[in-house]
Nucleic acid binder design. Structure first.
Lengths: 64, 64
DNA sequence: TCAAAATGTAAAGCAAGCTTGTCATGATTC
DNA sequence: GAATCATGACAAGCTTGCTTTACATTTTGA
């Protein structure tokens, strides 16, 4: 899955640490997810989308 | 997370095995997810929503 | 320029998602 | 009432998501 987290985060001028704190996960998880190391769980995807006031489909996209 | 999979599946008159086959997962996974044993991964949630022609938010709901 | 902040990366370990296989139960239908 | 189908449930095992800790590299900004 691709995601637009880095862009959405940049719009708010948040650091990965800021975002991690808001989401209740570790900074390493945010970093790994932004860099496509793995996909977030569904509950975490919901929290991310809600935080950015977007639909999940507007934050995440199935690859190719 | 709650989900409406059982209802959506019933509308199509599919068995859990039918759905599992369409999704490319085991019947046990479909059964476990329908019964709330665990949440699907994000990629699987996307496949489920797409199969039912719904937004992820229309199939899954954060609890409480 | 130089220090601090932000990001990347990696290892080890626990938790959650998913598998195959198997069995029990209830509903269908012949 | 016997066979079949659909569902529920459980165990063992593998993979993936997430953690903490730690350190290296890049970016920022005074």
């Amino acid at each position: 899955m691709k995601n637009r987290i880095r862009v959405l985060r940049a719009e708010l001028r948040w650091t990965q640490a800021d975002l991690a704190k808001e989401l209740g996960v570790s900074r390493n998880s945010v970093n790994a997810i932004e860099n496509g190391k793995y996909d977030p769980s569904l509950p975490l995807a919901f929290r991310i989308a809600r935080l950015f006031k977007r639909k999940i489909e507007d934050v995440f996209e199935e690859e190719g």
